[in-house]
Amino acid sequence: MRIVVAYKYAPDPQEATVASDGTLDFSRAKAIVSDYDAVAIEYGRQLADAQGAALVGVSVGGEAAAKPVATKAALARGLDEVVVVSDPELDGAGSTRTAQAIAAVVKELGDVELVLAGDSSMDVGARMVPSVLAGLLGWPMLSDVEKVTLADGSVSVERLVSEGVQSITAAAPAVVSLTSEAVKTKAPGMKDLLAAGKKPVAVKSLADSGLVAVSEGTVTARAKLDGPARKGVVIDTSDPAAAAAELVNALRAAGVLG
């Protein structure tokens, strides 16, 4: 049995800067295994150990995603092997093409009982890939999951919903996206780093993965970010009471508060 973890090698938002128009500039941010996907890898490792399953990472991206530093970083977190669909054309690919590429790998691998994904991608945050992937595979899709149990061809999950916890059982195989708190991640140790260098990595291009590079669809309208550009007012908080008063005054002056 295989458990797949779909992970993204993406620029770290903590290193992004906010441009004056409110958009994020990732150009100087270092790429890492997305924090949310690190949760999925850690969770997947525990499930795979309990099930005696192999844990396979699948990543889709441009050339950077297939570099040894990228695959080792993911393997060191506990994957047994990784398959990367890497193509210059997939650099910055949207949800549709990303999910298509993952679906192609999952079908080719075979014997996959579960695909785990993180809560969202760290850089884009659209939360679309797992759903599109489940649609393409024709499998159930369970989101916002805190706990997964695999048994007798079914997947039981506990979902975190606004009213509380919802328990659902679906037929396996399924696609599950985990909350960012589903498990606490740990930094890979030195032995994990050494072991990572010895684990198998398969790199596929768009052509090898048998994918048709469909377009992401047509952009019909673009919306500007909501509201006026930031004013960049910075309030010194060393004296909290004075800072609160200054904030209230600023909001009044801007007509936000009456």
């Binding site: 530093v69 930094a187 780093l193």
Partner: peptide, 14 residues
């Protein structure tokens, strides 16, 4: 090297 870069990332995270 890649391993040295990853060592930095891991130890920093820890």
């Amino acid at each position: 090297t890649d391993d040295q870069l990853l060592t930095r990332d891991s130890v920093r995270e820890f």
